[in-house]
Design a protein around this nucleic acid. Structure first.
Lengths: 167, 167
DNA sequence: TTCATTATGACAACTAACTGTCGTAATGAA
DNA sequence: TTCATTACGACAGTTAGTTGTCATAATGAA
């Protein structure tokens, strides 16, 4: 009981840390994305496509970013109108198109990368490469675990489940 | 250059992981908070006060949660109207009141704790107590680092800076 | 093939969060 | 004490994100 409580508190503090860091990153991202006409979310969407190194569907992007399917779709429509992404036919799905980043979009993410690379040393100060990787691994485990909880509790309503699993 | 690039990529993946986990936790929180009439954000605000073990001002809560000052204020006003928090005089600041959680609010957080404690084993599966604590420590370092960047870049506009430092 | 179930995109409505502004109070330096 | 600077709460306006619904398509089992 006491040990469980300590574990619960440790978990709670970690949850708070995630919220706080999420807010800090968002604010920072909005700062260095502003001169590019991007928001943190739109920069992340472009980054998600680049990181995957292949075109993705809207639900896949929503999954990768922890957003609802509709929120990702809205931003994709906006990025499409701006010419930063383009639709491609999806051989595996007639209506669910693939979104790829355009040359114009790649140019933006390159600029963004340069802007925040300046601050990499400061942002990751005191953390080794191994610690960065370890933190990512731990967070990924938590994401998968919580995803399992959500799916178990989830009814049959349309809450952004995806048919095509990423990877 | 190559090493720097590897570090940049590791950092980028970690940032994505934070966004994803943030979304998962928010969705999960909205699920188990729904029967209590709470949202994840409001539950977090109540939790932030409890975790601090002392009343906090609105800007302090915003800081703790990675939200803007105004967003925290809005939720606090709502929680105040619902009777889950109460204002107290602040001996250190005439206008910036302290917000404390009420007995009614404590009752809610206790219920929420019970609801998500059920899933603690599943949510934190595969992670030791030490790993949970380590992850929290690493994220806290990143938050502090990025906060430094934001404050350096920040102009003089009112963007939710706080006068009274937490702790 | 048939049919029930679920996913997708579009749309609408609602809520949450951010940005900006203002009057006022607190701070800190001269 | 004086005064310039900054933070606070309130308010308004805008944007982003969630929830819900619908028609349609994809899936999977009988």
């Amino acid at each position: 009981m006491f040990d469980d409580n300590a574990r619960l508190n440790a978990f709670s503090e970690l949850v708070f840390g995630v919220f706080r860091l999420n807010g800090r990153i968002t604010e920072w991202g909005d700062q260095f994305c502003a001169p590019l006409g991007l928001s943190t979310t739109r920069w992340q969407i472009l980054g998600a496509i680049e990181l995957a190194r292949r075109p993705l569907t809207a639900p896949q992007i929503a999954y990768a970013m922890g957003l609802s399917r509709q929120a990702a779709q809205q931003q994709l429509n906006a990025l499409l109108a701006l010419g930063h992404v383009e639709k491609q036919a999806n051989p595996l799905h007639e209506r669910s198109h693939l979104y790829d980043i355009t040359a114009q979009g790649k140019n933006l993410t390159a600029q963004a990368k340069a802007l925040y690379a300046e601050y990499l040393n400061q942002a990751a100060a005191g953390l080794s490469d191994e610690q960065l990787a370890l933190a990512q691994t731990l967070l990924a485990s938590l994401s998968r675990n919580i995803e399992g909880i959500i799916r178990k509790e989830n009814g049959k309503t349309d809450k952004g489940n995806i048919r095509m699993k990423p990877d």
